[in-house]
Design a protein around this nucleic acid. Structure first.
Lengths: 237, 237
DNA sequence: GAGTGTGAAGGCCTTCACAGCT
DNA sequence: AGCTGTGAAGGCCTTCACACTC
């Protein structure tokens, strides 16, 4: 039985990335790749790549590299559920619709099976290939169709309630785009995609790269209109 | 308050979260909050919250808590650029448009100032309050309007090229939604929002919570016959 | 007693360094 | 030589434990 140790979240994310990066390089059974080449593509170190593959049980060959087909099959063995997994998306606003479009028909083993929205006008419609249902049918459908995962793209104030309904109906995992942290039991895995944090984080660290702007006393008020130097042309790889 | 050491990414993300969670609780100058209450909201430990606030230089008072106004102002002192920061979004597909909608007019110190798209039909239009320009004007506008940040929501195969253009034009930070890792110099900060990884990660860990489904025939390295074919992966915004 | 501030310890992840294989 | 596999070391982050304050 393959119930080994749970692989760390970071590694899982990289495996998902490696798979995407490897697919275009998989031309025939005899395609190989070196750890340092994949590392370059993935923006990590070669050692990191080798360690990740160790966990897969995939071995490389010195001066030859790793067989790509073996890597892909190893990664699929970890990431893809043998019986497949189904997700439901709740909240078909702009972001929800974009995700439906983004994920629609992309994978065979993992896909968004149904969408739900509070707006009765959306119920009954098909959005990017996904049927949209009214909230009243959420519990029933999730149970009947054995949906495992929930994607939450509703406004902040409804997120917790929606999460409760999804959990109550039996999902084991949530992908949460609402700007809060959901309360939930330990038996549920929740991944937060916090767009606001991401945006503000980029802004902060981008600023840190420019020492000149980073020294500030009393951030209130508008300093000089132009104390920034656009030192462009620093493009190198 | 001037900033000495660069604060860790994790802490920055939490500060952004704390701020959002605190805002609704800020009623008047005399509102206070305990570390364990904020911890509950943020889904972290109370110790973690106190450590984060240590870095802000915000002190709490035993049996009283932290003054919310002071926290908010401390967080703003770290996160918000005194002179403001501007972002440009490239790739006004479904996801790009959703982000424009999501971020439009939300903050005073950080906002999306312009959008760009390859499609000439989109150029000239206003999408969720944001002007859309053709790609040919990207360099000029970024330089002229002193745009600091780039948000990339173009398909995979154009992402690196767009990143190069943005960097060339002088942005210091990138928020990348394309499913690859961008090559860039050390003077650029890049934050990847990897929707596919997030989805697959939730699927994996949700599965781990249910031992019954997790027992599968060993995939262990060698290509099995239940060979699953994956489709290519690509951001279709 | 109830909460905070913080040194010390712990845990997780990444990198180093180097042995071993081709 | 060139590249992999991996113990050991390092670094970052989080948690523990407890002194301290109101």
């Amino acid at each position: 039985m393959s119930v080994e140790r749970e692989i760390s979240p970071r590694t899982i994310e990289r495996l998902s990335l490696y798979r995407r990066l490897l697919l275009p390089h998989h031309e025939g059974e005899d395609s190989y790749i070196f750890s340092h080449d994949l590392a370059e593509l993935a923006g990590v170190t070669a050692t990191q790549v080798r360690r990740d593959f160790m966990q897969l049980g995939c071995m490389g060959v010195p001066r030859t590299g790793y067989r790509i087909g073996e890597l892909l099959s190893g990664i699929s063995g970890i990431l893809d559920a043998p019986a497949g997994q189904r997700a439901a998306l709740v909240g078909v606003g702009h972001l929800g619709a974009a995700l439906l479009n983004h994920f629609s028909g992309r994978w065979r083993w993992l896909h968004i099976h149904a969408a739900f929205d509070r707006d009765p006008d959306k119920a009954g419609s098909v959005i990017h290939g996904c049927h949209c249902f009214p909230m009243s049918e959420l519990s029933t459908l999730i149970r009947e169709r054995k949906i495992d995962l929930g994607i939450i793209t509703v406004p902040r104030d409804h997120a917790q309630e929606v999460a409760n309904q999804l959990i109550e109906a039996g999902v084991q995992g949530l992908l949460n785009f609402a700007p809060i942290r959901l309360r939930h039991g330990d038996d549920i895995y929740v991944e937060n995609v916090d767009l606001t944090s991401a945006f503000e984080t980029v802004a902060y660290f981008a600023r840190c790269r420019r020492p000149s702007l980073f020294i500030s006393e009393s951030h209130r008020g508008f300093p000089s209109l132009d104390d920034r130097k656009l030192r462009g042309d620093d493009v190198k790889s």
